[in-house]
Amino acid sequence: MPTAAATEGRPALCQPSTPSQATAQSPFHAFTQALPGIGLTVAIAGAAFLAHQVPGISALSPLILAIVIGAALHNIIGTPAWAKPGVKVSLRRVLRLGVILLGLQLTARQVVEVGPSGLLIITASLIVTFAFTTWLGHMMGVDRKLTQLIAAGTSICGASAVIATNTVTQGEDEDVAYAIACVTIFGSMAMLSYPLLSSMMQLNPHAFGLWAGASIHEVAQVVAAAFQGGTASGEFGTIAKLSRVMLLAPVVITLGLIAARQAASRLGASAATERSAGRPPIPWFVLGFIALIGLNSLIAIPADAKAWTAGTTTFLLSMSLAAMGLETDLTKLRAKGARPLILGATASLFIAAFSLTLILLAG
C-alpha cells in the first residue's frame, strides 16, 4: 500500500483504488475524522464564553478570547495532528454557518430608524475608510490581503468582518490574527475614549450614538461606549452599528467580484473559466446572510428565539476563531512587523475623524 508521501504528489485519478482509500474518501469517515478537532474548537469556544464572564475580562468578546486561547495552545503545546481535520471544518463550514445566522440579528426596519442622513454618513464613512486604508496600506508596503482585512475590520464590524472578508481574500491565518488584534486594540481604545471626547465636545445623545455606531469596530464595543451617554444614545448607537453590519454583504460580494476579475486577468480567460467552474468567486453563503435579514424583517421572531440564535451565532464564530488560533504561528505574526499595526491605528483615527466631521456638518 503506497504511503501518503508517495501518493501526495500524484493526481487522484492515477492513484490505485483500494478499500482503505474508498473508506477514507467516504463522507462518514471524513465526519468521524473531523469530530475530535471540532470538539476541540467547541471546548475552546466554551472556555472563551466562561472567561467572558470574569470581571475585568468581560470587555473582550468571546470571539477575541477564542482566538487568543487557540493561539496560546498552538504556540505553547502545538495543535495535535488528530485535531487538524476538524479544525479545517470549523475554519470553513462552521464559519459560513455563523455568518449566515448573523443575518437574524438585523432587520430592514433598523435601517429606516437610522434615517437617510444617518445611513448616508455610515455608508460614506465605511466606503471612504476602506478606500483610504487600502491606499495607505499599498503606500506603506503592507501585504494586500492583510490590508484588506484591516480595512474590513475597521470600516465594517471588527472580527466578524475580518473572518467573513478572508473567505474572499484567502489570507493566511496570521493575517486574520493580526487584523483582529488591530480591531481589538484600537476598538477598545475608542470604546474608552469616545465617552470622554463626547463630553468635551458636548455632543447630543443622537450625535454621540451615531458617531459610536458609525466608527467603533465591534458591536460590543459600540454598546459599551454608546450607553455611557445614556439610554437614548445607547439604543441609537446600537441600531446605527447594526445598520453598518448590513453593509458586510455587499462589501464581501464586491471583493469577490474584484478577486475573480483579477484572477481572469492573471490566468487568462480559459484558465479563469476552468477555475471558476470548480469554485465560485463570490461567497454565496453571504446570500444566506441577506436572506435571513429579509426573513427577520418580514416575520416577527420571538425574543427568546432571537436571543438563542444570537448566542448560537457568537458561539459558532468563536469556534471559527478558535480554529484560526490553532493554526496561527506567532513567529510569523511578529515577522510582519509594526507597519500593519500603524496602518490599523491610522485607519481607526481616520474613520473616527471622518464620521465625526460628517455628523457635525449634518447638524
Rank of each mutant, 00 (worst) to 15 (best):
A4V: 08
T7V: 03
P11F: 08
A12E: 14
Q15P: 06
S17C: 09
T18F: 08
S20T: 11
S20V: 13
Q21G: 09
S26W: 14
L35H: 02
G37I: 05
I38C: 12
G39H: 03
L40Q: 12
T41Y: 07
T41F: 08
I44A: 05
A45M: 02
A45I: 06
A48M: 07
F49M: 15
F49C: 13
F49W: 14
L50D: 07
A51Y: 13
S58N: 14
L63T: 10
A66M: 13
I67Q: 09
I69S: 09
A71Q: 06
A72E: 07
N75L: 05
I77H: 09
I77D: 04
V89D: 03
R93N: 09
L95E: 04
R96V: 07
L97P: 02
I100M: 15
L104C: 11
L106F: 08
Q110I: 10
V112W: 04
P116M: 06
G118R: 09
L119P: 09
L120D: 04
I122K: 07
T123C: 12
T123S: 15
A124Y: 08
F130N: 14
F130K: 14
A131I: 15
W135T: 06
W135C: 02
H138Q: 09
H138A: 10
H138Y: 03
G141P: 04
D143N: 12
L149A: 08
G153W: 00
I156Y: 05
G158N: 07
A159N: 00
I163R: 06
N166M: 07
D175Y: 08
D175I: 02
G187W: 00
M191C: 04
M200S: 15
M201C: 12
Q202K: 15
A207D: 15
A207E: 15
L210R: 12
I216Y: 02
I216A: 04
A220N: 06
A226H: 06
G229S: 05
G229I: 01
A232Q: 13
E235D: 14
I239D: 00
L242T: 12
L242F: 14
S243L: 04
V251H: 08
I253A: 02
G256L: 06
I258A: 11
A259K: 14
A263Y: 11
A264H: 12
S265L: 15
R266L: 13
L267K: 11
A269F: 10
A272F: 11
E274I: 10
R275K: 15
S276G: 07
I282W: 11
W284K: 00
W284S: 01
W284M: 01
L287W: 14
F289P: 13
F289I: 14
F289C: 14
L292K: 10
L292W: 10
G294Y: 02
G294D: 05
L295Y: 10
N296P: 03
S297T: 11
I299S: 03
I299T: 05
A303F: 10
A307I: 07
A307P: 02
W308Y: 04
T309M: 03
G311M: 10
T312P: 03
T313W: 01
F315M: 05
F315I: 04
L316V: 08
L316M: 13
L316K: 07
A323F: 10
T328D: 04
T331L: 05
R339G: 01
R339K: 12
P340E: 03
P340C: 05
I342T: 01
G344A: 10
T346N: 00
T346L: 03
S348H: 07
L349R: 01
F350T: 07
A352N: 01
A352E: 00
F354G: 01
F354K: 02
L356I: 02
T357I: 00
L361D: 04
